[in-house]
């Protein structure tokens, strides 16, 4: 199978280049990550992040034939050759397929990604009805792979100012939690021309999310909450 992979090692390369690989795969190689590991046996200098190999850790986000996804849950069979692999767009490249995610996580941290509830905790659990809990479905499952934010033109232009789809999805995760008491503070935190409102519903995030989550829907719900509190 043929691959064309973005290579850049600042230790020795003046500029990035695309390297071609032609690799014989084994029958057990089902996912793109299997193929990359096969390539790495031949060329140990190819650098990428990977861990769980089942789509829950979020390590191996990359741009696969022009579309962001997780290598470990992308079947080889559906890929057009040569398979073109590049690092996630819009973030600085550290090396090869490894990007610097500092900005991405800074935005995630900026939304105060933790439950805020200032009441003394009860002896047992805080109660939450199944319906209240269902509000978190499709939201809490995010693996922070950054496929969505790095597919978002608004994030490309303003990664320092726009929270981005992943961060906003998590902002909504806490706004939607019946146990959280910081709704006003959380909305204030997003009341800004950039942080929330740079989302123009292009929906690349929805299209690209390897976990089939819908950040745009969450963002629209936050926008609705903003509107609601002004009237």
């Amino acid at each position: 199978m043929r691959f064309s992979i973005y290579r850049y090692d600042p230790d020795k390369d003046e500029k990035p280049y695309m390297q071609e690989y032609d690799i014989e795969l084994e029958p057990a190689d089902k996912m793109l990550l299997d193929a990359l590991i096969r390539i790495k046996i031949v060329d140990d200098s190819l650098s990428l992040r990977r861990s769980c190999r089942e789509g829950v850790c979020g390590s191996d986000g990359m741009n696969i034939n022009g579309r962001n996804g997780l290598a470990c849950i992308t079947p080889i069979s559906g890929l057009k050759e040569p398979v073109e692999l590049r690092p996630l767009p819009g973030l600085p490249v550290i090396r090869d397929l490894i990007v610097d995610m500092t900005q991405f996580f800074r935005q995630y941290h900026s939304i105060k990604p933790y439950l805020i509830n200032n009441d003394p905790p009860p002896e047992t659990e805080r109660l939450q009805s199944p319906e209240e809990r269902a509000e978190l479905d499709g939201v809490y499952e995010c693996v922070l792979c950054a496929c969505c934010s790095t597919a978002c033109p608004s994030f490309w232009w303003n990664p320092d100012k726009f929270v981005g789809p992943a961060g906003l999805l998590q902002a909504y995760r806490f706004l939607a939690d019946s146990r959280d008491q910081a709704t006003a503070e959380r909305l204030d935190n997003l009341e800004d021309p950039y942080r929330l409102f740079r989302c123009h519903s292009i929906m690349n995030c929805v299209d690209t999310c390897p976990k089939e989550l819908n950040p745009t829907k969450a963002i629209n719900k936050i926008k609705a909450m903003m509107v609601k509190r002004t009237i």
Partner: peptide, 14 residues
């Protein structure tokens, strides 16, 4: 749970 863990819930909220 107090830290915010999104446990599934029973009808009675537990």
């Amino acid at each position: 749970e107090h830290f915010g863990m999104p446990f599934d819930r029973l009808e009675n909220g537990k």
